[in-house]
Design a protein around this nucleic acid. Structure first.
Lengths: 158, 158
DNA sequence: TGCATTTACTTTACATATCAACTATTGTCA
DNA sequence: TGACAATAGTTGATATGTAAAGTAAATGCA
């Protein structure tokens, strides 16, 4: 793996620093996601499915569907279908709220917890294999720069 | 936008620096991609479609389908469909190679070039709006850390 | 020459992202 | 109270990512 120009056989150098930043983020993501996708598939999950389960495990109790969606980047219709599938597989339950009958609360099941538990170690290993070669100081710096890079996203309008 | 713990209402702090790095890359990507997706859609394109067109414009001449795929991260079947759609819309042509009849060469059409040209300015603006607030030195550092972060990806095995 | 292998795609099937349009329930306010 | 708006979610249609299996043409090699 090397510079983005080489990886993509780009002919002209980047003329815009911000362009180079964005494209490097996208590229890094693609590579990381690809690896995690393979790992999840071995356990019969996809990344969004894993994320939803992880969020529900982190929460402990039931969580409205839209709240799950907002903690992922997911758009609403995607969450409906995703949670329905997890529900169909018995990894979560989906129950109508007593107080507000518009709300459906998702909750991870013991079966879901069990599956997640099996994934914990391999995922830790994957994190380390992918980025464990960065020093602590580099990691900190990278995270902090990415946070700063994301800083303006919400204020960008079309 | 803020720290990832707040964005996702994470309850426990990160125990693994490499995990925090990876998750920050994924999150940044989601936010950036979301914005670019909206922009491309205004012009009737998707991100992969735009990428393929951009690669073909950069190349100038015809390029085998698989070469386009390899410069994106795209898996092969995806490229077939994608290029077929661009072809159907007259944005590229797809012609069988004379020498090696297994090969199909894609080439951007004037209509495709015209569409890309309309996107150039808005995309530049988007890059700047998203990451123009980083200083040159921060951008350089971020790019270089991301390059280092990607360094191990290809050697990670499941 | 002829057959197995490799290469360059294509097809199929399933999961997700996205927008638009729709249903059901709740809240607001004249 | 009764209409209108807002909220929570679902459904439909199109596009992409991904694996698996298939097709067609070129290559390797006995």
């Amino acid at each position: 793996m090397a510079r983005l120009e080489q990886e993509t056989k780009k002919k002209k150098p980047f003329d815009l620093p911000s362009q180079e930043v964005v494209l490097n983020v996208l590229r890094s993501n693609e590579l990381f996601q690809h690896r995690f996708g393979q790992l999840f598939r071995e356990f019969g999950l996809t990344q969004p499915q894993y994320n939803a389960l992880r969020i529900l495990r982190g929460e402990g109790g039931p969580l409205p569907c839209l709240e799950v969606a907002s903690r992922m980047i997911a758009v609403v219709p995607a969450i409906t279908r995703l949670l329905d599938k997890l529900n169909a597989r018995g990894l979560i339950t989906k129950l109508q709220d007593d107080k507000d009958r518009r709300v459906w609360n998702a909750k991870i099941t013991p079966k879901g917890l069990e599956l997640l538990a099996k994934l914990d170690a391999p995922i830790r290993d994957m994190y380390r294999a992918l980025c464990g070669h960065l020093t602590k100081s580099e990691s900190k710096q990278l995270v902090s720069l990415l946070e700063k890079a994301r800083d303006r996203v919400s204020s960008v309008t079309l």
